[in-house]
Nucleic acid binder design. Sequence first.
DNA 1: TTGAAAGCGCTAACAT
DNA 2: ATGTTAGCGCTTTCAA
Lengths: 336, 336
Amino acid sequence: MGASIKDVAQRAGVSVTSVSRVLNGEKYVSKALLEKVNRVIEELNYSPSHIARSLKSQKTSIIGIIVPNLTNQFSSTILSNIEETASAKGYNLLVGNIAESLEKELKYLRIFQNMRVDGIIVMHQKFDDRILDFFAGASMPILFSSVKAPSSTYLSVMIDDYQAAFDTTEHLIQTGHVNVAYLGGDLDDITSGLNRYRGFLDAMKKHGLEQDERFVKFGDYKLPSGHRLMEEIIRQDELPTVVFAASDDMAVGALNCALDYGLQVPKDISIVGFDGSRITELVRPAITSMEQPVEELGRKSVDYMHQLIVNPEFTFDSDIILQHRLVVRESSRALM
Amino acid sequence: MGASIKDVAQRAGVSVTSVSRVLNGEKYVSKALLEKVNRVIEELNYSPSHIARSLKSQKTSIIGIIVPNLTNQFSSTILSNIEETASAKGYNLLVGNIAESLEKELKYLRIFQNMRVDGIIVMHQKFDDRILDFFAGASMPILFSSVKAPSSTYLSVMIDDYQAAFDTTEHLIQTGHVNVAYLGGDLDDITSGLNRYRGFLDAMKKHGLEQDERFVKFGDYKLPSGHRLMEEIIRQDELPTVVFAASDDMAVGALNCALDYGLQVPKDISIVGFDGSRITELVRPAITSMEQPVEELGRKSVDYMHQLIVNPEFTFDSDIILQHRLVVRESSRALM
DNA sequence: TTGAAAGCGCTAACAT
DNA sequence: ATGTTAGCGCTTTCAA
């Protein structure tokens, strides 16, 4: 199809080496040659093949990224922030949307391997053995963004989910809530399932409160499950004063359910989410949420990935923990 | 780093051709050779280089995609649907998030060119000359998804925005609305700016209604502009009975503004959006919206792109127009 | 300052 | 059924 470096060289009457030199802005090219070559490049609408360069240099400047679900607000926001830094640093993103399927994750990981991407960023959390094997045998650096890596061999850039859930719960208790409901995620899911739940539990314990079995329910982070679990709670004899959901989507589901049942939020019941995705600001009432620093998450993920790529000796002795921040909005109120 | 086909060949004591044959599942390989080679492939954890294959075959099986904004619900939903079909068809997606910057769009287009992607899908709309020049000189097929192509040389897969806006407006009029407000987008933006506005206008005209200057305002499709324009409308002396926003984000902005001003929706005022993105179902009241068939949009975009890629003689004499559908939810009501 | 030639990892035409 | 070799488009010695 397009012209190759050879075509340019021939038309310009020079060697391919010279064209290569012009392409790469090297020294030791005469002005005449430079101009001639550039003219021909224009004429032929030539553009150098990244493929060939990659083959030669063994670098693709591509980062493969495993996204759990593109339709999820939080994922796509992080993706967007990762893209921004990656692009600025000269990396391009090959996006593997796995739609929560391990089959698809494995498929994409193998593609990344074949593609010889410079590195892989994983934003997903629950793995099976085949995937762990892949990680172990991969020839490029792998970094986990917003989730805990399956082993300390890999770097994670994330918040302290345990502490964040602890702080949220403590805030609720300190503002007078005693009957705290918790809508959690899959406990097999270390970062956002288990750790957040443990943070909630320990904060309750610290303040001498016990978890009320009727008020602790587990779903799948998604909106419908928030709605469903909330419905179970509402239909019971007693109402908690606040519902702490382990994801914003679940919080929105819970909010909608409360509104559907004619409850006033936060007058009748407070609702608090987790993640700080944009959705919390755009529903009414706007939802109080434990916010993750998405810009920093994106930036640092790429920064460290870049380190891992350019410097094979780069070592770390712990995860990169970013600061969380509770953003109080309209959906929660103090009881005192 | 990793092993090459040569390493496999040597270790197995066969030629590279034989290894290649095994890799590609060709006929005429003895069972013994096949097993030997496969064993060595396992031992060496070998995976064939897609780079080298691409260089040889002049096919990358990569589709470059220009996304206006990853944080936008509608964009990422389409992207997700495109990804699904693309992945099923063996294509991988290189995502160019341009964050509405033409500089960045051009940058990504050039990268796609260098990368020798098999095709480019564009989900963006307002171009400058440099970008149009790029399109004209590109050596791979270019397809426009959900937006109108800048010329009929390119294929568009999209709905009929004019007709969709016309139908929405007519529906409102037929359910008794006379004072219809319209929150539009950039009129330079043919598909969603100009055509939707013209559809609105013509439907009004058809029913003998004139647009009320006080009720027609233009923003940028985003939520804050919907809020702002709605505020301008509310602060005027008279209220329309319905607000038709040219995007769901603007509709949500308008809804929030109405709620913030203590209006009841749809009792005091109806609100209608455009796009049918998930957000319309998750706010309260859920928003009536002119829905675009996102799954079909994604699927057909990739189907046609595939055609363009494999069959250079593929021709079309018109855009691919998909059906729109008004989904009535809680935010609008009939006045009769 | 310029060029010839080897080689990156693979496939395919040709030979045997 | 298997192997030899050229070549995809580029960069990089090495030589001139």
